[in-house]
Amino acid sequence: MTDVQIALIQALQAHAAWLEVPMLAFSFLGEPEFYLLVIAALYWCWDTRLGLRLALLMGITGGVNEALKVAFHLPRPYWVCPEIRALGSHPSFGLPSAHAQGSASFWGLLAADVRWKWFTVFAVGMAFLIGASRIFLGVHFPTDVLAGWAIGAAVLLGFLALERPVGRRIAALPLSGQVLAAFIGSLALGLASFGALAALGDWEVPASWAAGALEQSGEAIHPLDLLDAVMASGLFFGFAAGAAADRHPGSICAEGKGSVRLFRYVFGLAVAGAIWYGLGLLSPQGAVPAAYLFQYLRAAVAGAWVSFGAPAFFARYCPGA
């Protein structure tokens, strides 16, 4: 089965080289940075509720993906086959594909919210192209992508089934209880990956995988590093806790001209970037407890800025007219 998948990737790269630029573009549309750009635009400028739903869903699906990657601990194609060109790279394990899983969840929720037939077709097409791009770029086997789509759809269905009953229970809590619920949820997401890592025992990444990845891409791999899992956990907490603390959710989205909303968006992203990259300069190096704690706090602060800090600032200083 693996040989067939490798042959497929080689054939795509050899006979459809003109697809490299489009596939890189579609791959970017599956990156966390792209999702954050869209979520911030929705939350600050258009539909706060949809932005919040997307943020929580992507935090959940990201945490699930990180845990499953460690649980399966399988390689990426370019780690094990020198004939496959690494047109992209990533230090984590391959199964399931985070791009495929995230795209199924993200575009699936948008389609469920919009409920226009043409948009549903567009959303399915986007999820397909994002997943397919990862196969072409040599960073995922087709089975990684298929598993990602299936898991992303399952997470989405679970989210849609539970968001109302769980949301009503949490909304009935005082603010302290809502923040505590957000914290417990974020811990559950993070601990899933640490539990999967503990289950591996003394298993180590094969030296041939590390050598192959470095030779093909020029970048070292560290798939047992759980900083991305901690980041997803921290973002979930910061965004959920910040949204709970926002006393006027959605009020700024209904106000202001297009130019005012554009200013909010640009300013909000600039501050978010300053928080993320500024705190990143202070982060301890390596996968040590201090680094994990700092990564969690860094992500939580960035998430809280999006859902609470920026809306509070906009409501006071640039409500718009």
Results as ranks from 00 to 15, higher is better:
H248N: 15
H248C: 15
S251W: 14
I252G: 07
I252Q: 14
G256C: 10
K257E: 15
G258D: 13
S259R: 15
S259K: 14
R261K: 14
F263P: 01
R264Q: 12
V266N: 07
F267V: 06
L269E: 08
L269K: 08
A270H: 04
A270M: 02
A270L: 07
V271T: 02
V271I: 09
V271D: 00
G273T: 01
I275A: 03
I275L: 09
Y277C: 11
G278L: 10
G278H: 05
G280D: 12
L281H: 12
L282E: 12
L282I: 10
L282N: 10
S283C: 15
P284H: 03
Q285A: 13
Q285P: 11
G286D: 06
A287D: 11
P289R: 00
A291D: 01
A291Y: 03
A291C: 03
A291P: 06
Y292E: 07
L293Y: 04
Q295W: 04
Y296K: 06
Y296C: 11
A299T: 02
A299W: 06
V301K: 04
G303L: 03
A304M: 11
A304W: 01
A304T: 04
V306W: 03
S307T: 01
S307V: 01
F308M: 03
F308R: 08
G309T: 00
A310H: 05
P311W: 13
A312N: 08
F314P: 04
A315R: 15
A315N: 12
